[in-house]
């Protein structure tokens, strides 16, 4: 893989990102709904002067093209603006919420692998058996129900009835974790706070399971297919002919090669996880970017929605690039 090719890919992404920025700008401005009016809520005691002053402050009184001009010039300077509702720089809000979202995405990733890879292998080895059919159908369960419904059922079962996992949040304050990176798992390891680590992982489990179950089917299918393909290769046939046990054939010879596409497809899933978790975040009271952006859309907090979508898009593009880089690395034959 050549560095020049990577640079080229990054350069190609720039106009796409710019397009995303412009689309989200018009999206928000052209939707019905006045941010200042919504901020005032359903209550009396609102003065017209006050509403005008706020509209001026938010630059909503300017013509659309001037607003776009300000937005783009600020953006090029790396300034995402101030949130209308939270009155804070959007960049800071995003920075504060992104670690929670990324941590959840990785949790989901790991859980989907733990569910899916064994299912994929067993299905491939026992292709067309009842076991194959049933376990693959099982892998599809997660993808076939709305995440919010699954999340609520999990909370009822594991938090309310069995008291095994906490119902919401990332970490109780009482555990007393000193935050360094914002990733609580990493922070608790860095500070050697093992009770915080245990608590963090417990809090992560149910939301990760909810989010990850949806991807398990994809990963299981991928593992099964590539395993089937590998098992038909000459060297496996040869290994079998040499009289190796089935276990040795599958685990020692086939698995390693079969997992390559699985790993790459998984890297791609990160983008999906990041963009798809606002529902899981809402259900589990998870303080991530998804909840922030849903709330911002409802309140017509233009700068916050714009900022969050740009970050999402950036993450998506980067995750795809990452997947391809990992892929070419494990497969020297292919050029990026």
């Amino acid at each position: 893989m050549r560095l020049a090719r990577i640079l080229e890919r990054i350069l190609v992404a720039i106009p796409v990102m710019l397009g995303v920025a412009i689309v989200v700008f018009f999206f928000m401005r052209l939707s019905p709904g006045d941010p200042v009016d919504l901020m005032m809520g359903e209550a009396g005691s609102v003065s017209p002067r006050e509403m005008e002053a706020l509209a001026r402050e938010f630059r909503l009184d300017e013509p659309l093209h001037m607003q776009l001009y300000h937005f783009l010039t600020d953006l090029l300077r790396g300034d995402l603006g101030n949130s209308f509702v939270k009155r804070k720089p959007v960049a800071r809000l995003v920075r504060e919420h992104l670690p929670a979202t990324i941590e959840l995405a990785f949790g989901a990733l790991i859980i989907s692998l733990v569910i899916a890879i064994p299912i994929g292998i067993i299905s491939a080895v026992k292709q067309h058996s009842i076991l194959d059919r049933v376990s693959m159908a099982g892998a599809f369960l997660g993808i076939s129900m709305p995440a919010f419904w699954m999340g609520i059922v999990l909370i009822l079962v594991f938090s309310v009835f069995w008291h095994v996992f906490p119902s919401h949040g990332r970490l109780p304050f009482a555990v007393g974790l000193k935050t360094i990176t914002g990733f609580y798992t990493i922070d608790s390891i860095l500070t050697g706070n093992w009770s915080a680590l245990a608590s963090t992982l417990k809090h992560l489990f149910l939301p990760s399971l909810t989010l990850g179950a949806g991807t398990a089917a994809t990963v299981a299918r991928m593992t099964r297919s590539s395993m089937l393909e590998v098992l038909r290769q000459d060297y496996i046939v040869l290994a079998r002919a040499k009289g190796l046990t089935e276990y040795a054939v599958v685990v020692k010879h086939a698995l390693r090669n079969a997992l390559i596409p699985t790993v790459t497809i998984v890297a791609l899933q990160i983008g999906t996880f990041l963009g798809g978790n606002m529902i899981v975040e809402t259900v589990f009271g998870w303080p991530g970017l998804g909840r922030l952006v849903v709330d911002a859309i409802q309140r017509r907090d233009f700068p916050l929605v714009q900022g969050a979508v740009i970050v999402y898009a950036l993450t998506f593009v980067a995750a795809n690039l990452l997947a391809d880089i990992i892929y070419t690395f494990v497969n020297p034959k292919i050029e990026l």
Binding site: S159, H163, P166, S167, H168, T282, F284, G285
Partner: peptide
């Protein structure tokens, strides 16, 4: 805790 069901569950679970 934005989700109502979760909020109630949290109270019932003693959280």
């Amino acid at each position: 805790i934005p989700e109502t069901s979760t909020r109630i569950a949290a109270l019932q679970a003693g959280d």
